[in-house]
Write a protein that binds this DNA or RNA. Sequence first.
DNA 1: TGTTTATATAACAAGTAAGTTATATAAAAG
DNA 2: CTTTTATATAACTTACTTGTTATATAAACA
Lengths: 107, 107
Amino acid sequence: MANLDAAFSALADPTRRAILARLALGEATVMELVEPFELTQPAISRHLKVLEGAGLIVRRVEGTKRPCRLAPTAVAEIDQWLGMLRRALETNYDRLDGVLAAMKPEQ
Amino acid sequence: MANLDAAFSALADPTRRAILARLALGEATVMELVEPFELTQPAISRHLKVLEGAGLIVRRVEGTKRPCRLAPTAVAEIDQWLGMLRRALETNYDRLDGVLAAMKPEQ
DNA sequence: TGTTTATATAACAAGTAAGTTATATAAAAG
DNA sequence: CTTTTATATAACTTACTTGTTATATAAACA
């Protein structure tokens, strides 16, 4: 699961999360993604490269433009891994509930 | 949501994800967490500090030991943020389905 | 009390990340 | 064909990360 490194690492940056949030509203070109940020175009281009490398976005070629949109696969992978933690936390809660329930009568 | 930076960043490291996977099986002390890795104790101690800072684990004091266990809050936060992407991807799929459905008759 | 055990911290080296400016490329427009 | 527009890449700087070894602290034990 080497790709989780890239996916989580990509999501660790607030600019990249903001880009994903923007793409959640629909496709956007590089310049459209540059506009809302106080960053240069090369900086955004590199963020997009990171997101693409992590499988979080895909791009198509449209003349000189490169419209980006969300890709589905990485999120599914992340969800799957987090599911392990979720289940463990639920189990631990159940265990705690059990402990508390067992303690109640004596109190 | 400044904590998402810390949470995703913490999850980006495979050693830290392995530690979390171990803690999903139950509480463990620092030395118990060092054992399965080819890393020194200070390295693991720092990983644990990162995980704690991200709200992914909590520790209690038990004599000279510091048993660690999973903390629930951060995973919930992450899930919440990913929910935004999930919903967007579903919507985009629906949209694509719509487009494909609209195309079918003409083909 | 002196030693061992469990953990944390400091100091440092090497690698990676994220920003910048300058420049390259290639399609579009005139 | 020349210019503009959209994007990518290179070179560089600064800062952070992750590992190491050496050392500190404090509880447990003998």
